[in-house]
Design a protein around this nucleic acid. Structure first.
Lengths: 156, 156
DNA sequence: GTCGGTTCGACAACTTGGTTGTCTAAAACT
DNA sequence: AGTTTTAGACAACCAAGTTGTCGAACCGAC
């Protein structure tokens, strides 16, 4: 039985959604019910040194306006702090808060647990093989910064 | 090197996006530059017998209002036709047009070609194995009708 | 055979995560 | 000093969704 190409795409999407939906639910259960996957991307950019909205926009391949909107939400929810930059009056210096780092760490842990659960189901070696094949096919630069909208609207 | 769980999720998303983006580009090159993945889902529902907006909404797990909006776009672009139902004055009877069936067929063909290209890269047997493992993990009911928003905003 | 509930589609207001375009203020070149 | 670039703030808009409301039409029960 040769699957159709469309089925393959749906299978991949299904895999992603299965993991992310489970992670969002678990994160909500741990008290972060206002956190979305897209926030994770933006916060990682901030944590990695993008300390202005414009820079976050560039790194996540999104307009600075869109980045500013998302950041406003994150600041509002206490995941990111924003203060005037004494060295450059145009800039607002962004930093991930303690709560922000906490949700990032917990998110990582949840995904690792989910991956382990998958490993128990098909075998760790098989899972590693699957990852290897997928890496071959889609490349190692999955999170490359030239893909606009990549993660938006994926965990409604 | 044990990959992180988050990487696995990104790998799956990357796979899906790689296929869908390529398909959207190819479809646009063939003259369907106003077609989005979400339209495919809705049209398949119509083709499968959902001939009213409310029914499409139910089958795609979306409010009837959202379904009606998407259908309005499809009708506007000539992929679906809408006419009064002589048997029930409340209903508008929906049907996929010739142009609609054409885009569905071409979309299928494109995805099949993409899958074959993948098969040439890692081997058909390996690809089949990958699909089998994924099916085990996410289930065969990937396109199940209880997942709202599943495909929206995925090929911006 | 009318009356009450259900269904269909329409309309409106709102949400999220994006987009352009315009503008000011501040910094940086030269 | 003067021009150009940059950051961020607004505004208007888009796409795909949501809820709520509504009238018209249908259906079933009394």
């Amino acid at each position: 039985m040769s699957r159709s190409g469309a089925d393959l795409a749906l299978l991949l999407l299904g895999g992603y959604r299965t993991l992310v939906d489970a992670a969002v639910v678990e994160l909500a259960a741990r008290g972060y019910d206002d956190f979305r996957p897209v926030h994770d991307f933006v916060m990682r950019a901030v944590a990695a040194g993008a300390d202005t909205a414009s820079e976050v926009g560039r790194r996540t391949s999104v307009s600075k306006q869109a980045a500013a909107k998302t950041i406003a939400v994150l600041v509002d929810r206490g995941y990111v702090s924003s203060e005037a930059d004494p060295a450059d009056a145009r800039r607002k210096r962004l930093r991930v808060t303690e709560r922000g780092f906490d949700v990032l760490r917990q998110g990582e842990a949840i995904f690792d647990e989910l991956r382990e659960a998958w490993g128990r189901r098909i075998g760790a070696a098989e899972l590693a093989l699957l990852e290897e094949r997928l890496t071959t096919l889609v490349g190692d630069d999955v999170v490359r910064p030239d893909a606009p909208g990549w993660v938006a609207r994926d965990a409604g």
